[in-house]
Design a protein around this nucleic acid. Structure first.
Length: 821
RNA sequence: GCCGGCGUAGGCCAACUUGGUAGAGUCGCAACCCUUAGAAGGUUGACAGUGUGGGUUCGAAUCCCACCGCCGGCACCA
């Protein structure tokens, strides 16, 4: 009887003894001249045991890693843990424990589950980001960013729970309320650390060209959206009675003559400043309303435009026209400069506002569409400029160039590109993270902790996870906070923020080749040898977070001359999610299907096979649609088959049944190219097909003793080991093979056996199949034509009609086209 | 609104890259064989004309256009 459970420990031991998953040349060359392949799965967060999502991701990346290894690559398949973060802190707070206990206990549980799943990691790479030996280098990285002007502090709003007296992470806020106590969350300003990601916006966009075709289209599209490049110009508007002009951003400087009013975000300080005294009361009432309703109402699209006239005027720099200034909530204080020039004829939002407030609408671009003043529909396309002074008659692109250079010449504006991408807020008012290595000194200001004093270790006692009064947890560790200033030796205090865990994950793949390296964050030789990552596998939820941060940090390191590449991940595969009856499963929701239960029922191999066979890797898997039972049955079938096959002897495989050999080698060929294209589900289907071929060969073909059958079974075992590693070893052993099947590599298809002696040629009449011919693959067009014309079926289909032409695509097809009657 | 992806038998999926027999695999279903207390195992079979409408072509699931539906991202972003 096939038993998927008893074979697990046996083979884990063999693999470990034979060190089959260890890459060679991890830290030195060791004279291995095989091509290297670096296959990385996004590392797990240690929240409890592995779940179905992990099993899917690692089934995919492991199949890829195992395939490359068997194809002769020197493969590095690392594992580590993303072990800082909020869940550990929450769990620790609830149980009044040290977050270390929860974290490291979970890591051990997951490590054991990975082993039992048969994932082919090189365990020597193992790292945990919460180890001081790791986060030390987070701090080092932070200091380098600081030195290069890429880390700075500014004030920014945080989520504040007034009842718990604490700062909340975004994921702790549900529908505007505190996840724990349910009270309404307020915004509060706090001075926080940022990385200057915005400085790299254009390069993050430009370098996507090299990812095109290698990363999924949707991830690239998401990153493009996220970066949000917008080209246009800044224009300075003088305001009557104000010394400084107000600058606005517009993507349509060509419509400047059509700017008939000016709008300031109601919640921006500028609005209050510009408001004339007689309008002050009305304005303040409006602003109050805007501030209270922002949260929910801003989400509702199509709501009527509202605003208040401020009784002030701006002066249009191109025609000196005085235009009224309004405060409104449809202009956002956080984007651009918080003020806009409004061109109602050519912007729908401005038109809606103008109609609501009764402002003049002036068409300045003739697009050939109906007049917006009558239709209420703004015309935003290109066209010929009208009512625009010297711009009249120009086309949109010409007008943009002309007006921009004119504004620049007169010092009234400049062409500009803005980005939606904002700087990376990395401060966290949390305990379980990397302390920011900065000391605040009353006389010296911000002082970086000297490199040789790293790591700044987290205090292990004397701190509160939820201190009173809204302090950060580390601020409650008074002994830890008080330090001597490295510059003046006076009394000073440590920074009490910790870093976003996305800092940890933005470079961990650099450290895998030598996770114990202590002369720097990563071993330069190891990085040169293995990086960039050849194959990165992970979920789409990281499209704009982790992947963007990792790309940014890699570019920063590249600019510091610390790595030799500007893009960290050459190829990216997103696995889909595992869902159940259409419902998503995740850490936060109840897991509808428990991985351990599935493993207990079906064994690791069947679960892995089910994961990859369910469909393309990127698609979601609905566990209700697939059949782990079917997978077990297939594996049992292969196992039984191996028991019937004549064990290895000295027969010449060349003497085996030719038909069987041809089918075996053609399936090897197909499976190989499917694996190369990562079409894992189809590759598994081919292996199932091979299983049936062998079954029939035994029952109703040349029989179990035929050398071709044994050859086929051996090849099956070898290929199977990418998906069902335990069963494959067992099958290999039953066939008389010596451990480990992995070391025998991927089978090579014999081209002579793959080649077809005859192929089926389809004969169509008017595009419909009427006959089939068995022909040589090298058959000539003329010969095919004659064969087709001799066909009785073709004549019948033609029914005496005249032939207009005959299309021949040798050797597959002949199409006889009759003249239309 | 903008951007990206996906629509193929009863379910999951192949064939789409490179236009040329719609079916490789799988779950389920049916029949048969073997057993027969049942199950497992083996063999065979039925079921769709490819979301809709156009176009290109000798020929379209495949390429192009429009629309519909579903999923995802961004969004009063000036």
């Amino acid at each position: 009887m096939y038993d998927p459970h008893s074979i697990v420990d046996k083979w884990i031991r063999v693999w470990e003894q034979r060190r089959v998953f260890e890459a060679s040349g991890l830290t030195d060359d060791e004279g291995d001249d095989r091509s290297r392949a670096y296959v990385v799965s996004m590392y797990p967060y240690p929240s409890g045991d592995l779940h179905m999502g992990h099993a899917e991701a690692y089934s995919i990346s492991d199949a890829v890693a195992r395939f490359l290894r068997m194809r002769g690559y020197n493969v590095l398949n690392p594992i580590g843990w993303d072990s800082f973060g909020l869940p550990a802190e929450n769990a620790a707070f609830r149980r009044d424990l040290d977050p270390r206990l929860w974290t490291y206990a979970n890591i051990e549980v997951q490590a054991e589950s990975f082993r039992k799943l048969g994932v082919s990691f090189d365990w020597r790479t193992r790292l945990h980001t919460s180890d001081p030996g790791y986060y030390r280098w987070n701090q080092w990285l932070f200091l380098r960013m600081y030195e290069h002007g890429l880390a700075y502090r500014k004030s920014a709003p945080v989520n504040w729970c007034p009842v718990d007296q604490t700062v909340l992470a975004n994921e702790q806020v549900l529908h505007g309320r505190c996840e724990r106590c349910g009270s309404e969350v307020a915004q509060r300003d706090l001075t926080q650390w940022f990385f200057r990601t915005s400085q790299y916006a254009q390069r993050l966009l430009d370098d996507m060209a090299q990812l095109e075709g290698r990363w999924p289209d949707d991830v690239l599209a998401m990153q493009r959206n996220w970066i949000g490049r917008s080209a246009g110009a800044y224009v300075d508007f003088r305001i009557d009675g104000r010394d400084e002009p107000v600058r606005v951003f517009t993507t349509r400087p060509d419509t400047l003559f059509g700017a008939t009013f000016f709008v300031v975000a109601a919640d921006a300080p500028l609005a209050e400043e510009l408001c004339s005294p007689e309008q002050y009361g009305e304005f303040m009432a409006y602003r109050e309303k805007v501030l209270t309703e922002t949260e929910m109402d801003r989400l509702a699209a199509d709501r009527p435009k509202t605003g208040v006239y401020l009784n002030r005027h701006a002066i249009n720099p191109v025609n000196g026209e005085e235009i009224p200034i309004y405060a409104a909530d449809y202009v956002l204080s956080g984007y651009g400069t918080g003020a806009i020039m409004a061109v109602p004829a050519h912007d729908q939002r401005d038109l809606d506002f103008a109609r609501a407030m009764g402002v003049v609408v002036r068409v300045v671009v003739d697009t050939g569409e109906p007049d917006p003043r009558e239709t209420g529909v703004a015309t935003s396309g290109g066209g010929i400029l009208v009512n625009s002074g010297q711009l009249n008659g120009l086309r949109m692109a010409e007008a943009i160039a002309a007006i921009t250079s004119d504004l620049e010449r007169r010092g009234l504006g400049e062409s500009a590109v803005t980005y939606r991408l904002r700087d990376w807020l990395l401060s966290r008012q949390r305990y379980w993270g990397t302390p920011i290595p900065i000391i605040h000194c009353p006389s010296c200001g911000e002082v970086p902790v000297p490199d040789q004093q790293l790591p700044v270790r987290l205090p292990e006692s004397g701190y509160e996870l939820r201190p009173e009064g809204g302090k950060a947890p580390l601020a409650s560790a008074t002994e830890w906070v008080h330090v001597v200033c490295p510059l003046c030796s006076g009394d000073a205090e440590r920074d009490t923020d910790t870093m976003d865990t996305f800092v940890d994950s933005s470079w961990y793949f650099l450290r895998y080749p030598d996770p114990h390296y202590d002369a720097g964050p990563f071993d330069p030789a190891g990085v040169r040898r293995w990086l960039p990552v050849d194959e990165y596998v992970g979920g789409k939820e990281h499209a704009t977070g982790h992947l963007m941060y990792a790309r940014f940090v890699t570019k920063a390191l590249y600019d510091m001359d610390l790595v030799h590449f500007a893009e960290p991940f050459t190829r990216l595969t997103n696995q889909g999610q595992v869902i159940m009856n259409g419902r998503a499963m995740s850490k936060s929701l109840d897991n509808l299907v428990d991985l351990q239960e599935q493993l207990t029922r079906y064994g690791p191999d069947a679960v892995r096979v089910t994961m990859v066979f369910a469909g393309p890797a990127e698609e979601d898997i609905d566990w209700a649609d697939v059949s782990p039972t079917g997978s077990v049955k297939w594996l049992a079938r292969v196992w039984r088959l191996a028991g019937e096959v004549h064990p290895a002897g000295h027969e010449e495989t060349e003497r085996g049944d030719l038909t069987v050999r041809q089918r075996v080698h053609r399936l090897i060929e197909e499976t190989t190219s499917l694996m190369e294209g990562k079409r894992l589900n189809v590759a598994v289907a081919r292996l199932m097909e091979l299983t049936s071929v062998l079954r029939k060969a035994i029952d109703s073909g040349p029989g179990a003793t035929d050398p071709a059958v044994r050859e086929g079974a051996e090849c099956l075992a070898r290929m199977l080991s990418c998906f069902a590693p335990f069963t494959a070893e067992e099958v290999w052993e039953r066939l008389g093979g010596r451990p480990s099947v992995i070391e025998y590599g991927w089978p090579q298809a014999d081209p002579a056996l793959v080649a077809q002696e005859t192929v089926t040629c389809v004969v169509q009449v008017a595009g419909k199949v009427r006959d089939r011919l068995e022909v040589r693959p090298t058959v000539a067009d003329e010969e095919l034509r004659e064969l087709a014309m001799r066909s009785e079926k073709v004549h019948r289909a033609l029914g005496g009609a005249q032939i207009q032409k005959v299309i021949i695509k040798a050797p597959a097809l002949v199409n006889v086209v009759p003249r239309k009657s």
